[in-house]
Design a protein around this nucleic acid. Structure first.
Length: 954
RNA sequence: GCCCGAAUGGCGGAAUUGGUAGACGCGCUGGAUUCAAAAUCCAGUUCUGGCAACAGAGUGGGGGUUCGAUUCCCCCUUCGGGCACCA
């Protein structure tokens, strides 16, 4: 009988299905382990070989843990709401509900092809009303809480109202959008609308007019992490800043805990660094400057209070609220012109022209509180409205940007830090001695910072302050395909929540779901739905994609509960995710939002842990080979003109060519430095791209056009080198390898093992289809240990010590390597083991039984089949993972390298119990060693047990 | 500009706490089998010199610590990823 992966895999897939082998029960008698994959959004593109990498790794680990006696939760679901799903629907011209369902079916069938051990009965789908009911419910919990800075946790808004009624804002220390203060009496006198507005200032999800990233092409607001390089992450459309009334989530309230929590998780350093950067904590102080002739004051944030004596001007963000107030009549025109210029610029313009110095003078002056001197107030783009207070004290001597600004506009520069003692330091380094700085003169910068902070606190003109780059997340999307926000407004605009028993607030069916070209959301067009509640108007914006994905991992614990998002018992048992595997692209988006949600749910006692994901691993991308043809930018006699890549280099015209990607299978020897196209490949190319049917193809040997090859004299055929590089696997590079094809040719087991064999899980690595032969060969070899010459070969004979040694070496290596997720070396260990057994011609049951169990996480279908061949009844996935017996690994004697000054010069066998003295003596007497120590003194002899003998001579 | 990470044969990559560098696979070379091919099996494969035994060099480059460094420390180069006027 030959190894036939197709029939085996079909058979066992059916068996697993029918016997619900992977169904998980909340069986609290066993220790639990939770292995999670980042769930996919069901796009229409289908999987390529890179996608399943993380799923395969998590599946191997989940199966391993299961065999080690853990009750393993290993679920899968779909992130079906949100922009990508809706964009796909819009481009395909179908309803997102329809396309989402189709895509889910396709994903499911592709995943089923690979033998994953997901418990599909726990599947979640974020666009299912039974699921998003709880997304809305958690949203309302956020809405009903505020962040109490003193308690350092979320507290009910109802508590806050009690405080307002008693003492107004006195004694309230909470995270807010704006500082407000009022008395209890004032609170009593407020209208419902005024009170509602006040409370909004505290809620953890709040509605407010704020500057947002508006993407016209997508017709919606985007969160900061959805904007990359000034354009939308999805589609690369321009993004502008625009003031819109919309919902936000007060992530900033959790900034400090999001930062400190990173110390308690086992995550990759790169990811932690990225989140740390994104949070961007900086210590400094607030300082208040009087404005000459105005009652208003300007508050600034600075990390360098010590340099205040050198603050020779101030800069406000163009959007700063005081700009209009303080601008003098003389300067009004200049300021208006500048504001118009600022408004005309997109995010992309701002980013690409960072170096340009621009600004305008308001005509007003502030008073430097230390020097008492009047300093001019300017506005400029380089001061951001969203960070700090949107205003700075400018110290040309302490900050390069301030310096450039001062030089450009001819403003005063006072040196305040003498850094001559630190020749390598720049102005941004906090070192040097203070000069021209009154009471600070002579102090070191670090001491001066402290002294200034004490001084401003004493004077009452400022205080210590920690600032974060992290911004509150935009929570509204002016799109159709998302969770409706369960909030209604009365005629006065007073907001209120829907009661729990009205949830879910279902997304209405709409034929016309496309985004409008204004900021009005599609749901606003559905008048009937909007006015579902008599006398009220429903919120028309929907929630962003990250809403549903911020808590889905808790739902898997108890997916069908309609009393709670998950029962307390289920959560107390499963607790949190032990291992989370997914792409690094979610570093600051999904992972930041879910941590915030989780900390909030922890604060209000609804989840048992503060952090959701204990250990996290980013799987690396599997890359493809991209082959380019070189096309001259200018046509020749009206024809497109392709040129051999090497010939173009010889002619030195590389700057005059465009690279166009072609299907890799048009190219001979693709992926190598010698990849090239000949006439038959060119013919296939022309068939694919008829617009080039008359194009000229030129290499150093000749020219091909319209089916005719004209040699330059040499007899060579057309041989056009292409340009190979390794890069993303993507439709636009025509280099996508479909896992279904690989599975059809080699089987899922082979595909799984090969993906793991390619390299370390976390590393990017190129796909090479040829290499899979090695794994395929290994599987057939393994099969031949069970069936030799088509006959069942398993024998009940007792194995030799040598056979046991081969087996237990592999068990030891593989079980430690699975634990550290080094699956690539596991596959190597399997190969070594099978090769050795093959050499020993070993077909013994006592060897093959543990080998089969050990194989099961990697090649589950094949392992089941072999398990049955061995005469076992139940599924191998419920068997125990073998344990290495160290007694077989012990050696009677060990071969030691004998080194002279660290260089190996001989080897010698020593019995394990040989004393160090005897080993030293024997080593020095070795003939091969004698010639190396001849005439030299022996300084010492180092003996490292089980490793080596090193003789130091000199 | 700032913050991470990486660099090992022709290629993908191995190498627990510093202890025989190149496991395993691909590719390549030679051989067996075959009428022939595929498949399979065996042997070889870091570089230089040598028929060989063997010798020398060798983990991006330069320095250091050590009996001994792919591994630890300092400097530099290149590549990859992230952030980007954050006061």
């Amino acid at each position: 009988m030959d190894y036939s992966p197709r029939s085996i895999e079909k058979k066992w897939k059916k068996y697993w299905d029918e016997n619900a082998v992977y169904k998980v029960y909340n069986d609290t008698s066993k220790p639990k382990y939770y292995v999670l994959d980042m769930f996919p959004y069901p796009s229409g593109a289908g999987l390529h070989v890179g996608h399943p990498l993380g799923y395969i790794a998590s599946d191997i680990f989940a199966r391993f843990k299961r065999m080690k006696g853990f009750n393993v939760l290993h679920p899968m679901g779909y992130d079906a709401f949100g922009l990508p799903a809706e964009q796909y629907a819009v481009t395909m011209g179908v309803h997102p509900a329809v396309s989402t369902n189709q895509n889910i079916k396709m994903f499911r069938s592709q995943m089923d092809n690979l033998g994953f051990s997901f418990d599909w009965s726990r599947q979640v789908n974020t666009s299912d009303p039974n699921y998003y009911k709880w997304t809305q419910w958690i949203f309302l919990k956020l809405y009903e809480h505020y962040y109490d800075n003193d308690a350092d946790k979320a507290m009910p808004i109802s508590d806050l109202i009690v405080k307002f009624e008693g003492n107004g804002t006195a004694g309230v220390n909470a995270a807010t959008s704006e500082d407000v203060s009022f008395t209890a009496e004032a609170w009593q006198k407020m209208s419902p609308r005024e009170r509602a507005d006040i409370l909004m200032n505290y809620r953890l999800v709040y509605r407010k007019e704020s500057m947002v990233n508006w993407c016209e092409a997508l017709g919606t607001v985007l969160a900061n992490d959805e904007v990359k390089d000034g354009v939308s992450e999805r589609g690369g459309h321009p993004v502008v800043q625009k003031p819109i009334i919309q919902w936000s989530m007060r992530t900033t309230a959790y900034a400090e805990r999001l930062l400190s929590g990173l110390n308690n998780v086992d995550w990759p350093d790169a990811l932690r660094a990225q989140q740390t950067n994104w949070i961007g904590r900086s210590e400094g102080g607030h300082m208040v400057f009087d404005i000459d002739g105005h009652g208003d004051k300007i508050k600034v944030f600075t990390t360098r209070p010590d340099t205040v004596f050198g603050a020779t001007f101030m800069v406000l963000a163009p959007e700063h609220e005081l700009v209009a107030k303080i601008t003098t009549n003389d300067q009004k025109q200049a300021i208006d012109d500048y504001l118009e210029y600022v408004n005309s610029r997109s995010e992309l313009d701002r980013i690409s022209e960072v170096k340009n110095v621009t600004g305008a003078f308001t005509g007003a002056y502030a008073v430097n509180p230390m020097t008492e001197e009047n300093i001019p107030i300017w506005i400029s783009e380089y001061v951001l409205a969203g960070y700090g207070t949107g205003a700075i004290m400018a110290v040309p001597d302490g900050d390069l940007r301030d310096k450039k600004f001062a030089e450009h506009f001819g403003l005063n520069i006072i040196p305040v830090v003498d850094q001559t003692m630190y020749p390598d330091a720049g102005p941004e380094d906090k070192v040097g001695k203070m000069i021209n700085s009154g009471f600070l003169n002579g102090m070191e910068v670090k001491d001066a910072i402290e002294a200034t902070l004490e001084e401003i606190e004493r004077k009452g003109i400022g205080e210590r302050k920690i600032n974060y780059k992290l911004r509150d997340a935009n929570y509204s999307r002016q799109r159709y395909w998302g969770e409706p926000v369960p909030i209604k407004y009365d005629a006065d605009g007073v907001d209120s929540r829907l009661p729990d028993n009205e949830l879910p607030l279902e997304l209405p069916e709409m034929e016309d779901f496309e985004p409008g070209n204004s900021t009005e959301a599609p749901l606003a067009r559905n008048k009937e739905w909007i006015h579902s509640y008599e006398g009220y108007r429903l919120e028309a914006d929907t929630m962003p994609g990250f809403a549903g994905s911020s808590w889905y991992f808790m739902r898997y614990m108890d997916p069908n509960n309609d009393e709670a998002f998950a029962s307390k018992e289920a959560m107390d048992y499963w607790e949190s995710v032990d291992l989370y595997i997914g792409g690094a692209e979610h570093a600051v988006g999904h992972l930041m939002y879910s941590r915030t949600w989780h900390k909030f749910l922890f604060d209000i006692g609804l989840v048992p842990t503060d952090e959701p994901f204990k250990k996290l691993v980013n799987q690396g991308m599997i890359q493809g080979v991209i082959e380019h043809m070189y096309l001259k930018k200018e046509k020749t006699d009206g024809f497109s003109h392709f040129i051999c890549a090497r010939h173009a280099a010889e002619l030195n015209i590389l700057d005059k060519i465009a690279k166009i990607p072609v299907y890799v299978d048009f190219v001979n020897a693709y992926g190598t430095p010698d990849s090239y196209m000949d006439i038959s490949s060119i013919k296939r190319f022309i068939e694919w791209r008829p617009e080039y049917k008359n194009a000229i193809f030129e290499c150093s040997g000749g020219v091909y056009q319209k089916g005719e090859y004209k040699s330059h004299g040499t007899a060579n055929d057309l041989h056009m080198f292409t340009d190979s590089e390794v890069g993303k696997m993507s439709k636009r590079y025509f280099n996508v390898v479909n896992p279904d094809d690989i599975v059809n040719n080699y089987g899922a087991d082979c595909f799984r093992m090969y993906e793991m064999f390619l390299g370390p899980l976390e590393q990017a690595k190129p796909w090479d289809t040829k290499g899979i032969e090695g794994v395929s060969k290994f599987l057939r070899k393994l099969w031949s240990l069970f069936y030799a010459d088509g006959e069942l070969a398993v024998s009940d004979e007792a194995p030799t010590k040598e056979e046991f040694k081969v087996l237990h070496t592999a068990i030891k290596k593989i079980s430690t390597d699975i634990e550290r997720l080094a699956f690539n070396t596991c596959v190597s260990a399997f190969m070594v083991c099978v090769n050795d057994l093959k050499k020993l011609n070993s077909h013994k049951r006592e060897i093959l039984d543990p080998l089969t169990r050990m194989l099961s996480p990697f090649a589950p279908h094949l392992a089941e089949e072999l398990w049955q061949v061995l005469g076992q009844e139940a599924s191998v996935t419920t068997a125990d993972f073998p344990v290495a017996d160290e007694s077989y690994l012990k050696e009677d004697s060990i071969t030691y390298p004998i080194c002279i000054n660290g260089k190996k010069r001989a080897t010698a066998d020593f019995a394990v119990d040989t004393s160090k003295e005897d080993m030293e003596k024997a080593s020095l007497e070795l003939e091969a060693i004698q010639k190396w120590i001849d005439g030299k003194t022996i300084r010492k002899v180092i003996i490292v047990p089980k490793r080596m003998v090193n003789i130091v001579v000199g």
